[in-house]
Design a protein around this nucleic acid. Structure first.
Lengths: 231, 231
DNA sequence: ACAGCCAAAAAGTATGACGATTTGGTTTCC
DNA sequence: GGAAACCAAATCGTCATACTTTTTGGCTGT
């Protein structure tokens, strides 16, 4: 699901370098310089740069070169940008932003899911809530992470809103990042587990208000925990 | 703020054609075909296609061609994709999705703005609320639209969350679309105007709860109106 | 000091050649 | 007759090169 070939390789190095600030805002690169740096042809560099231009991270101007745009212009919703920022120096800022976004979106998605979810989705959700409980008790963090991601993604998808659905991967990246960087308790909180169960039950019962409330409690807790960890 | 040159022109025709469904999911294009269709060289076609690939609208495979990806894979948060869909056959679906997104994000943004807005932002917000009232009374729809966009963008920006801030343009596109396509009352509702004022006052007073409530009422109303208009 | 012009620098575009990979048919061998 | 191996064509991928266009900054002349 990544861009392939040499342009993909260039993108995969240049993107993170810019996202991390290693190549700072306002820096000017020349195409030829990039050709040498990556040992590829003009064609390849240009295609990679075009993609970066598409996400507003750089702008190319004749007689000047390729300018790194100010961060405020970047397409911060682009999954690549999010991944690059999560992997680099901007991690905390990115996690904070995403935390607020989850805070806004996930409760709304849970409410919509209670109204629109298919029977299959409801069943799957219930089953995931159970597995979540099991893996949490077993303190199997890897399996727990997988089920947690599946749970939140499913709620977002079941909301019936394509834009919410697309945030599934992003939320997944957040949860993964938080586990990887030790930003969560070693043992998942029993209280949080219970809340996941409540969300599932409420969605199954078609209770939008309750689903929204329980989900809000989950993401509020997650955000609070994050703030505490990040200081 | 658009991609320039020939690739930009190709993108500007090909993107909308795909977004509108004129070139349907699963369709396979050949590079050479596009060269002829647009009268440009390989270089140009390839760069445009790469950008589309970056937004996951197409995938290019050897010996096969350039395949239009299913809509569910597209980067639905990409501003270009949003614009193209708003301009084409998908308009209603896109407006609905964006409506739910606003419903989730704007109240949260208003609450954050009440906590984090700068003094300048608060002043500007107050002033915009006044101008909104004036232009609404004068039934000057164009000026009203401008102020409405500025108001909502400012709240999103003042939230202090970069991701919320980036939705400003998108919300602007929604409001513009709704005015252009006659999806709103000819005379702005006095009640809605009053609510904008309440949002501004609450943010100025640092009252997050009240700001969130008033903003929620605004977007709930907007969404209800939209659903009614779209049937 | 100012205006206008000119030249260099960098990206933009076009084109031809070749490489790599995938697909689908064809042949060959059981 | 079927299956496996092979081969050839189609198409994208990459490179190198030549030429064009735009922009900028300096130079020149008044």
């Amino acid at each position: 699901m990544e861009i392939q070939g040499l342009p993909g390789r260039v993108l995969g190095e240049l993107g993170p370098a810019i996202a991390s600030g290693e190549i700072p805002e306002g820096a000017v690169l020349r195409g030829e310089e990039l050709e040498e740096r990556f040992g590829v042809s003009r064609t390849v560099v240009r295609e990679a740069v075009r993609v970066l231009e598409g996400m507003r991270m750089v702008a190319s101007r004749r007689r000047v070169g390729i300018t790194v745009q100010p961060k405020s212009l970047w397409d911060v919703f682009d999954p690549m940008v999010i991944r690059w920022r999560l992997a680099g120096a901007d991690r905390s800022a990115q996690l904070r932003s995403l935390g607020s976004l989850r805070m806004a979106v996930e409760p709304a998605a849970a409410a919509l899911a209670a109204l629109h979810a298919s029977d299959d989705d409801r069943r799957e959700l219930s089953s995931l809530a159970v597995e979540l409980t099991v893996t949490a008790r077993a303190a199997d963090l890897t399996a727990f992470l997988g089920h947690d991601i599946a749970f939140h993604s499913l709620v977002l998808r079941a909301s019936g809103n394509e834009m919410f659905a697309h945030l599934g991967d992003t939320v997944g990246a957040v949860l993964t990042g938080r586990t990887e960087y030790q930003l969560m308790p070693h043992q998942p909180e029993p209280y949080a587990i219970r809340l996941h169960r409540e969300v599932a039950d409420a969605i199954c019962a078609g209770d939008a208000v309750q689903a929204e409330r329980a989900m809000r409690t989950i993401v509020t807790g997650a955000l609070a925990e994050l703030e505490q960890q990040l200081g």
